[in-house]
């Protein structure tokens, strides 16, 4: 069947996969670095290319989300999670900012937090906003977000709320298996993601220092510009989404996102969220590893009968879904030892 073959080609780094990747990268370059999309936005009655991007993003999440629910309709976790992703995108990442904009207010994206939304913790910006937003941002970024990650794992954000994860788990679903599972990729991930985290923490520190001392060195301004360009535009946009058909859907989340790094640390420290492995039932088929969008070799744990928490795990739950022997289960409990049954 030609349709099956085309789909296989598109989702397994065939020619069509490369073409789609090239188009996506081209789209992100056009979006971030040119005004080529502005006339298109105006043609459909939108005021800027960013509004057009918002509309496209939301539509794609809704279409991908419906496909996702149809595919995994028998799995309540997937249905609930995907419904929440769609809801958050429509309400918090689209409707509210658009309404605020229509009312000539600043467009706040209430589902994005520092350090992913880096500017929200830039004191020059933050302390010029109305006080409820200041309180919301400080409380959410510094207390609520990490606290929830400690209690429920980073999944509550990365695969339930975040727009980047939302896109990955809806439109990106057909490419999730392309993530690199090698131990070399894991090594690279640890270096790259914590480097970005350190850089973003350092920059935030510098911005606060400059704000307190009321003297902003030109180097800090330059640092800020480069951070925005490399992390904000190239890594999260062009590389993160553009390379879906080549590197899988979570390239940004896994290797670069400073927020994922921070939540990963909290998830490990919280010791509550884990993937439980039912003992001596794994047949090492490897579907779990194959479908892990974060490139975790889940099979390696399952075949060792080892329940585990990995910092990178976003708790999408697909490993558990595809396991033909029902070995894996996402859980939120303290005390791994007590529940794994002992041996």
């Amino acid at each position: 069947m030609i349709r099956d073959r085309l789909y296989h080609d598109l989702t397994n780094r065939g020619i069509t996969g490369w073409i789609v990747a090239a188009l996506l990268v081209w789209f992100y370059i056009a979006l971030y670095f040119t005004e080529n999309l502005t006339p298109w936005a105006q043609k459909v009655g939108l005021s800027s290319k960013w509004d057009l991007y918002g509309v496209l993003y939301t539509v794609v999440i809704l279409v991908g989300g419906i496909a996702m629910i149809r595919k995994y309709g028998h799995n309540r976790y997937q249905v609930v999670r995907t419904a929440v992703v769609m809801f958050v995108q429509v309400v918090f990442a689209f409707s509210i900012p658009m309404m605020l904009k229509a009312l000539h207010q600043p467009e706040y994206y209430l589902s994005y937090f520092w350090p992913l939304k880096f500017d929200y913790m830039n004191p020059e910006y933050l302390f010029r906003q109305p006080w409820p937003f200041v309180v919301y941002t400080l409380a959410a970024s510094l207390v609520i977000v990490p606290l929830l990650a400690a209690l429920f794992g980073k999944r509550w954000y990365c695969s339930w709320v975040c727009g980047c994860g939302g896109l990955a788990n809806t439109m990106g679903e057909p490419w999730r298996h392309l993530s690199d599972k090698s131990s070399a990729a894991w090594k690279f991930e640890k270096v790259s993601i914590y480097s970005v985290l350190c850089i973003s923490l350092a920059l935030t520190g510098l911005l606060f220092y400059s704000w307190f001392t009321k003297s902003k060195a030109p180097e800090v301004v330059q640092f800020q510009t480069w951070y925005g360009l490399i992390v904000g535009s190239i890594l999260s946009g062009a590389v993160g989404t553009g390379l879906y058909p080549l590197g899988g859907t979570r390239v940004w989340c896994r290797f670069f996102c400073p927020m994922a790094a921070l939540l990963g640390i909290t998830q490990r420290a919280g010791k509550r969220f884990h993937i439980r492995v039912k003992e001596d039932m794994c047949i090492s088929c490897g579907l779990c590893s194959k479908y892990c969008e974060m490139g975790i070799d889940v099979r390696a744990y399952a075949q060792r009968n080892e329940s585990f928490t990995r910092a990178s795990c976003v708790g999408c739950g697909i490993c558990s879904e595809v396991c033909p022997r029902g070995v894996l289960r996402l859980e939120n409990q303290s005390g791994l030892v007590q529940i794994s049954g002992g041996r």
């Binding site: 296989h8 397994n12 090698s182 131990s183 047949i283 090492s284 088929c285 490897g286 579907l287 590893s289 194959k290 099979r299 390696a300 075949q303």
Partner: peptide
């Protein structure tokens, strides 16, 4: 390799190399 995953290779869901439970190194 994992014999239990032969079916997934046949279904083109997995590549031959994915059937190997341990990295070659």
């Amino acid at each position: 390799f994992s014999r239990t995953a032969l079916m997934y290779a046949y279904m083109d869901i997995m590549q031959r190399r994915d059937l190997e439970p341990y990295e070659r190194k």
